[in-house]
Simulated assay, not measured.
Amino acid sequence: MFKIMIVEDDRTIATLIAQALNKWQFQASVIEDFSRVADQFAADQPDLVLLDINLPVRDGYYWVQKIRDVSQVPVIFISSRNTNMDMVMAMNLGADDFVEKPFAMEVLIAKINALLRRTYHYQDNGSEALEHAGLTLDLKTGMAQVAGQEINLSKNEYKLLQILMRAHGEIVSRSHLLKDLWQDERFVDDNTLTVNINRLRKKIAEAGLPDYIQTKVGQGYIVP
């Protein structure tokens, strides 16, 4: 069960977030003493932090720097401060995402799930390669191989193939892929994903595995 620390001084918002997280089978903890955020972080060892900018004692910018001094745990800012400068500063100081208040709870949960997947689920966990249906992906070199024939992959092709292979048998939505590859799909032309998928398909087909990646119309892609 993933542990999520909520650093939010609006008690109503913090409680609502905690309740939603608990429904999604996360273990939520809510900060009570805003002078000891770093101490509580060290004690809880959360897997993700939700951090407001405007806080008593010290602001969120201060605390994200303290967290980054000791950990690369994912951090999502949740704030009503929504200027471009606020967002840029948050990212530059080490945040992984920014959610503007007021927000829909399902949007926050979706962002949390996506960030947890990127950070933990898609790690290689000590494995050096993925193998499925005749294709091997070397996680150290980024090279794919089919029956001894090597396939040179671009950075995005490698990421796409890794995500799809790890989720083999399950449909992965275009939105999911866009978020995992480019963090914020709003700034990416949807055609970019199509181009990358088509190039990846062509390379795998030329190596002897046609239809390795299949399209599910209106749903996404799957490696069956």
Score class of each variant (00 low, 15 high):
I53T: 03
P56W: 05
Y61P: 03
W63S: 10
W63Q: 04
W63M: 08
V64H: 02
Q65N: 07
K66Y: 01
R68L: 09
D69N: 13
Q72C: 02
V73K: 04
P74E: 09
P74A: 09
I78H: 07
S79P: 05
R81D: 09
V88E: 12
M89K: 15
M91I: 14
M91V: 06
N92R: 15
L93T: 06
A95K: 07
A95M: 02
D96A: 04
D97H: 11
F98N: 02
E100L: 13
V107K: 11
N113I: 12
N113P: 00
A114G: 10
A114D: 10
A114L: 04
L115G: 01
L115N: 11
L116K: 09
Y122V: 03
N125I: 10
G126R: 11
E128W: 03
E131A: 13
E131T: 14
A133W: 05
A133K: 15
G134Y: 07
L135K: 12
L137A: 08
D138G: 11
L139T: 04
M143A: 14
A144Q: 05
G148M: 12
Q149W: 00
Q149L: 02
E150M: 12
L153W: 04
L153M: 08
L153G: 04
S154D: 11
S154P: 02
Y158C: 12
Q162Y: 05
R166T: 15
A167C: 09
G169I: 06
G169K: 05
E170P: 00
R174S: 15
R174K: 14
S175Q: 12
H176L: 01
L177Y: 01
L177W: 03
K179G: 00
D180K: 03
L181I: 08
